[in-house]
Amino acid sequence: MPDPDNPAAPIFDFKDGDSIPLPPPKPFQSTLRYPSNRKTIYDRNLNRTQTAPTSLPSFAYVFNAIITYIHTKSGSVAEIENRLNRAGYPIGIKLLDLLLYRQLPRSPQRPTRILDLLQFIHGTLWRSLFNRPADALEQSTTKKNEYMIVDNEPVVNTYISVPKDMSQLNCAAFVAGIIEGLCDAAGFAMEGVSAHSAGETDEMWPGKTIFLLRFGEGTVEREEAMKAG
């Protein structure tokens, strides 16, 4: 109860030593750093087709930190790949819209057929991320919902050597996550996209990586219905 004679008096009367006064709150200081012209990446024009290339060592440093973090948190190779995949997924979702927006001439077309989508990934996505198209695009001979995109030397793996006891791991799972996000955002439900090393026997390209795209059942059915007209 407040004291009616002295409304300013505190409700609780602590004896000396019962309480420690809180330090006065520090004025908020943002630790965000801005470029000297105060223009962040969000202030730039979305429609820059000629982008300044990102420094590969800077990317490697950040990617290295992601992998080290995930490595300490995960118990198995599959879990590491899964977490890397999830790290790439939101990038893919956003990239679809950005790449369509930047497409020339100014009549962006969404990929609606599987082949269009694969061409879009193989060409447009790869060029925007790695400045070159992917090396091959193949269809599985046994399963009709499986397609493969081959990269002879993934840029993200430039400085990464996987130790022998984790030889199943391929850190390009991050790129697989980007692909999966992009396909899902384009309306192609995926069973999953995974990255597999295929360079053990390849003298020329020891880092060869195959991205396996597994489309969902509904997507394949729709594709066939569209084909039939």
Binding site: N64, Y159, S161, P163, K164, C171
Partner: peptide
């Protein structure tokens, strides 16, 4: 290839393929 490799622990013997 050693320092930028996420699987290498500093000061440890170098077993890095690349």
């Amino acid at each position: 290839f050693v320092v930028k490799n996420p699987f290498y622990a500093m000061e440890m013997p170098i077993r890095v393929e690349k």
